[in-house]
Protein backbone atom coordinates (compact mmCIF):
# COMPACT_ATOMS: atom_id res chain seq x y z
CA UNK A 1 0.00 0.00 0.00
CA UNK A 2 1.25 3.46 -0.87
CA UNK A 3 -0.30 6.60 0.43
CA UNK A 4 0.11 9.29 -2.18
CA UNK A 5 0.75 12.76 -0.84
CA UNK A 6 1.26 16.24 -2.19
CA UNK A 7 2.94 19.19 -0.43
CA UNK A 8 0.61 21.84 0.82
CA UNK A 9 1.18 25.37 -0.50
CA UNK A 10 3.76 27.15 1.67
CA UNK A 11 1.23 29.93 2.34
CA UNK A 12 -1.10 27.48 4.06
CA UNK A 13 1.76 26.05 6.12
CA UNK A 14 2.85 29.56 7.13
CA UNK A 15 -0.69 30.32 8.29
CA UNK A 16 -0.65 27.24 10.53
CA UNK A 17 2.65 28.09 12.11
CA UNK A 18 1.96 31.81 12.31
CA UNK A 19 1.85 31.89 16.12
CA UNK A 20 4.78 29.49 16.59
CA UNK A 21 8.38 30.56 16.75
CA UNK A 22 10.00 27.19 17.39
CA UNK A 23 9.11 24.37 15.05
CA UNK A 24 10.10 20.72 14.85
CA UNK A 25 9.78 19.00 11.47
CA UNK A 26 9.04 15.30 10.97
CA UNK A 27 9.18 13.49 7.66
CA UNK A 28 8.45 9.87 6.75
CA UNK A 29 10.85 7.38 5.21
CA UNK A 30 8.20 5.37 3.43
CA UNK A 31 5.41 6.73 1.21
CA UNK A 32 6.23 10.44 1.61
CA UNK A 33 9.87 9.77 0.71
CA UNK A 34 8.76 7.82 -2.34
CA UNK A 35 6.49 10.69 -3.38
CA UNK A 36 9.27 13.26 -2.80
CA UNK A 37 6.95 15.14 -0.48
CA UNK A 38 8.26 14.35 3.00
CA UNK A 39 11.62 12.61 2.66
CA UNK A 40 14.95 13.89 3.92
CA UNK A 41 15.56 16.41 1.15
CA UNK A 42 12.04 17.88 1.39
CA UNK A 43 12.31 18.14 5.17
CA UNK A 44 15.68 19.94 4.90
CA UNK A 45 14.25 22.24 2.24
CA UNK A 46 11.27 23.02 4.47
CA UNK A 47 13.67 23.79 7.35
CA UNK A 48 15.45 26.33 5.15
CA UNK A 49 12.19 27.92 4.01
CA UNK A 50 10.92 28.24 7.57
CA UNK A 51 14.22 29.73 8.71
CA UNK A 52 14.18 32.14 5.79
CA UNK A 53 10.78 33.28 7.08
CA UNK A 54 12.18 33.98 10.51
CA UNK A 55 11.18 30.73 12.22
CA UNK A 56 13.50 28.67 14.39
CA UNK A 57 13.72 24.94 13.76
CA UNK A 58 14.46 23.00 16.97
CA UNK A 59 15.25 19.86 15.03
CA UNK A 60 14.04 17.49 12.36
CA UNK A 61 13.85 13.79 11.72
CA UNK A 62 12.59 11.35 9.12
CA UNK A 63 10.80 8.52 10.91
CA UNK A 64 11.15 5.23 8.96
CA UNK A 65 7.37 4.65 8.88
CA UNK A 66 5.44 7.46 10.54
CA UNK A 67 2.21 5.47 10.69
CA UNK A 68 3.52 2.65 12.87
CA UNK A 69 4.04 2.31 16.62
CA UNK A 70 7.81 2.96 16.44
CA UNK A 71 6.86 6.62 16.06
CA UNK A 72 6.53 6.69 19.86
CA UNK A 73 10.17 5.58 20.23
CA UNK A 74 11.34 8.12 17.66
CA UNK A 75 9.58 10.92 19.52
CA UNK A 76 11.17 9.78 22.79
CA UNK A 77 14.65 9.73 21.28
CA UNK A 78 14.15 13.19 19.83
CA UNK A 79 12.43 14.44 23.02
CA UNK A 80 14.77 17.34 23.66
CA UNK A 81 14.17 19.00 20.28
CA UNK A 82 10.48 18.08 20.25
CA UNK A 83 9.90 19.49 23.74
CA UNK A 84 11.45 22.83 22.81
CA UNK A 85 9.14 23.30 19.82
CA UNK A 86 5.88 25.26 19.89
CA UNK A 87 4.50 22.95 17.22
CA UNK A 88 5.31 20.00 15.00
CA UNK A 89 5.13 20.22 11.23
CA UNK A 90 4.46 16.68 10.02
CA UNK A 91 5.48 16.09 6.43
CA UNK A 92 3.81 12.70 6.45
CA UNK A 93 0.48 11.34 5.30
CA UNK A 94 -2.59 12.05 7.43
CA UNK A 95 -2.10 8.73 9.23
CA UNK A 96 1.39 9.82 10.25
CA UNK A 97 0.12 13.25 11.37
CA UNK A 98 -2.46 11.65 13.65
CA UNK A 99 -0.07 9.00 14.88
CA UNK A 100 2.43 11.66 15.89
CA UNK A 101 -0.33 13.62 17.65
CA UNK A 102 -1.39 10.65 19.79
CA UNK A 103 2.18 9.68 20.70
CA UNK A 104 3.39 13.12 21.79
CA UNK A 105 4.30 13.22 25.48
CA UNK A 106 3.11 16.81 25.90
CA UNK A 107 0.14 18.09 23.99
CA UNK A 108 1.12 20.59 21.32
CA UNK A 109 -0.16 21.43 17.86
CA UNK A 110 0.79 19.07 15.04
CA UNK A 111 0.25 20.61 11.60
CA UNK A 112 0.12 18.70 8.34
CA UNK A 113 2.61 19.76 5.71
CA UNK A 114 1.09 17.48 3.11
CA UNK A 115 -2.28 16.72 1.58
CA UNK A 116 -3.08 13.02 1.60
CA UNK A 117 -4.41 12.22 -1.85
CA UNK A 118 -5.22 8.53 -2.17
CA UNK A 119 -4.15 4.96 -1.72
CA UNK A 120 -2.47 4.00 -4.94
CA UNK A 121 -0.32 1.53 -6.76
CA UNK A 122 2.62 2.32 -8.99
CA UNK A 123 1.20 0.96 -12.24
CA UNK A 124 3.92 2.58 -14.33
CA UNK A 125 7.31 3.78 -13.03
CA UNK A 126 6.69 7.01 -11.15
CA UNK A 127 2.95 6.98 -11.88
CA UNK A 128 0.36 6.20 -9.24
CA UNK A 129 -3.28 5.30 -9.66
CA UNK A 130 -5.94 5.36 -6.95
CA UNK A 131 -7.15 1.84 -6.48
CA UNK A 132 -9.22 1.46 -3.33
CA UNK A 133 -11.92 3.34 -1.46
CA UNK A 134 -11.83 0.97 1.52
CA UNK A 135 -15.54 0.29 1.07
CA UNK A 136 -15.62 -2.78 3.31
CA UNK A 137 -17.39 -4.91 0.70
CA UNK A 138 -14.87 -5.64 -2.04
CA UNK A 139 -16.25 -6.03 -5.56
CA UNK A 140 -12.94 -6.84 -7.28
CA UNK A 141 -13.98 -10.47 -7.73
CA UNK A 142 -16.71 -9.30 -10.09
CA UNK A 143 -14.80 -6.50 -11.79
CA UNK A 144 -11.62 -8.15 -13.02
CA UNK A 145 -9.56 -6.56 -10.23
CA UNK A 146 -10.37 -2.97 -11.20
CA UNK A 147 -12.34 -1.05 -8.58
CA UNK A 148 -15.13 0.92 -10.29
CA UNK A 149 -15.86 2.83 -7.09
CA UNK A 150 -12.64 4.80 -7.40
CA UNK A 151 -11.62 4.28 -10.99
CA UNK A 152 -14.97 5.20 -12.56
CA UNK A 153 -15.66 8.93 -12.14
CA UNK A 154 -19.32 8.15 -11.37
CA UNK A 155 -18.63 5.07 -9.23
CA UNK A 156 -20.90 3.07 -11.51
CA UNK A 157 -21.59 -0.51 -10.52
CA UNK A 158 -23.10 -1.83 -13.73
CA UNK A 159 -20.90 -1.00 -16.68
CA UNK A 160 -19.71 2.05 -18.59
CA UNK A 161 -21.87 5.16 -18.90
CA UNK A 162 -22.54 6.90 -22.20
CA UNK A 163 -19.44 9.03 -21.79
CA UNK A 164 -16.92 6.25 -22.39
CA UNK A 165 -15.08 7.00 -25.63
CA UNK A 166 -12.04 5.29 -27.17
CA UNK A 167 -11.22 3.78 -23.80
CA UNK A 168 -11.25 7.16 -22.05
CA UNK A 169 -13.51 8.65 -19.40
CA UNK A 170 -15.69 11.63 -20.26
CA UNK A 171 -14.00 13.74 -17.61
CA UNK A 172 -10.61 13.76 -19.34
CA UNK A 173 -8.79 12.19 -22.27
CA UNK A 174 -6.02 11.39 -19.76
CA UNK A 175 -8.28 9.24 -17.60
CA UNK A 176 -8.86 5.67 -18.74
CA UNK A 177 -12.44 4.39 -18.55
CA UNK A 178 -12.40 1.82 -15.74
CA UNK A 179 -15.24 -0.13 -17.32
CA UNK A 180 -13.40 -0.37 -20.63
CA UNK A 181 -10.51 -2.00 -18.76
CA UNK A 182 -12.91 -4.30 -16.92
CA UNK A 183 -14.66 -5.16 -20.19
CA UNK A 184 -11.38 -5.93 -21.97
CA UNK A 185 -10.14 -8.13 -19.14
CA UNK A 186 -13.44 -10.04 -18.97
CA UNK A 187 -13.38 -10.55 -22.75
CA UNK A 188 -9.77 -11.77 -22.60
CA UNK A 189 -10.62 -14.35 -19.98
CA UNK A 190 -13.93 -15.38 -21.52
CA UNK A 191 -15.98 -14.08 -18.59
CA UNK A 192 -17.98 -11.30 -20.25
CA UNK A 193 -21.24 -12.94 -19.19
CA UNK A 194 -20.36 -11.82 -15.64
CA UNK A 195 -21.18 -8.25 -16.70
CA UNK A 196 -24.77 -9.27 -17.44
CA UNK A 197 -25.69 -9.67 -13.77
CA UNK A 198 -27.06 -6.52 -12.12
CA UNK A 199 -24.85 -5.53 -9.24
CA UNK A 200 -27.05 -4.86 -6.18
CA UNK A 201 -27.03 -1.47 -4.49
CA UNK A 202 -24.06 -0.83 -2.27
CA UNK A 203 -24.20 -0.91 1.51
CA UNK A 204 -22.44 2.35 2.29
CA UNK A 205 -23.31 1.85 5.95
CA UNK A 206 -20.32 -0.44 6.37
CA UNK A 207 -17.96 2.13 4.88
CA UNK A 208 -17.80 5.88 4.36
CA UNK A 209 -21.36 6.59 5.50
CA UNK A 210 -21.52 4.33 8.54
CA UNK A 211 -19.77 6.59 11.01
CA UNK A 212 -16.19 6.26 12.26
CA UNK A 213 -14.90 2.72 11.87
CA UNK A 214 -12.87 0.85 14.46
CA UNK A 215 -11.72 -2.70 14.76
CA UNK A 216 -10.08 -4.93 17.36
CA UNK A 217 -7.69 -7.64 16.35
CA UNK A 218 -8.85 -11.01 17.56
CA UNK A 219 -6.55 -13.99 17.29
CA UNK A 220 -9.36 -16.29 16.24
CA UNK A 221 -11.71 -14.03 14.32
CA UNK A 222 -9.31 -11.55 12.75
CA UNK A 223 -10.57 -7.99 12.98
CA UNK A 224 -13.72 -7.48 15.02
CA UNK A 225 -15.43 -4.24 14.08
CA UNK A 226 -16.80 -1.94 16.70
CA UNK A 227 -18.56 1.29 15.97
CA UNK A 228 -18.09 3.01 19.32
CA UNK A 229 -15.44 3.51 21.98
CA UNK A 230 -15.34 0.47 24.30
CA UNK A 231 -16.24 2.56 27.37
CA UNK A 232 -19.08 4.24 25.49
CA UNK A 233 -20.90 0.93 25.05
CA UNK A 234 -21.30 0.45 28.79
CA UNK A 235 -22.80 3.88 29.32
CA UNK A 236 -25.13 3.63 26.34
CA UNK A 237 -28.72 4.07 27.39
Amino acid sequence: MKTITQQKPIEEIMQYVDRCKWIHIIGCGTCATLCHTGGKSEVVEMKQRLEASGKKVTGWMVIPTACDELTADALRQEAEAVDKADCILAMTCAIGVQNIAIHLKDVKPVYPGLNTMFIGIEDKPGHFTEVCLQCASCVLGRTACVCPLVRCAKSLFNGPCGGSSDGKCEISPDVPCAWQIIYDRLVETGRLDEMEAIEPVKDWGVSVSGGPRQGDVDAECGIVLSSAEPEATSTKS
Binding site: A153, S155, F157, N158, G163, E170, V201
Partner: peptide, 28 residues
Protein backbone atom coordinates in the same frame (compact mmCIF):
# COMPACT_ATOMS: atom_id res chain seq x y z
CA UNK B 1 -29.99 8.72 -15.83
CA UNK B 2 -26.48 8.73 -14.40
CA UNK B 3 -26.03 12.42 -15.21
CA UNK B 4 -23.08 14.24 -16.71
CA UNK B 5 -20.15 14.40 -14.34
CA UNK B 6 -20.22 17.46 -12.07
CA UNK B 7 -16.84 18.46 -13.47
CA UNK B 8 -18.62 19.73 -16.62
CA UNK B 9 -21.02 21.97 -14.75
CA UNK B 10 -20.99 25.25 -12.94
CA UNK B 11 -20.20 23.71 -9.54
CA UNK B 12 -17.25 21.49 -10.44
CA UNK B 13 -16.23 21.30 -6.77
CA UNK B 14 -19.52 19.60 -5.81
CA UNK B 15 -19.52 16.13 -4.32
CA UNK B 16 -21.08 13.72 -6.79
CA UNK B 17 -23.53 11.49 -4.92
CA UNK B 18 -23.71 8.33 -7.05
CA UNK B 19 -25.15 6.35 -4.16
CA UNK B 20 -26.90 4.07 -6.66
CA UNK B 21 -26.42 3.93 -10.43
CA UNK B 22 -28.95 4.42 -13.22
CA UNK B 23 -29.61 0.70 -13.66
CA UNK B 24 -30.21 0.31 -9.94
CA UNK B 25 -32.56 3.31 -10.13
CA UNK B 26 -34.61 1.52 -12.80
CA UNK B 27 -34.71 -1.57 -10.61
CA UNK B 28 -35.70 0.47 -7.57
Amino acid sequence: LSGDHQKFGNHPQAKGVFDIDSIQLIQM
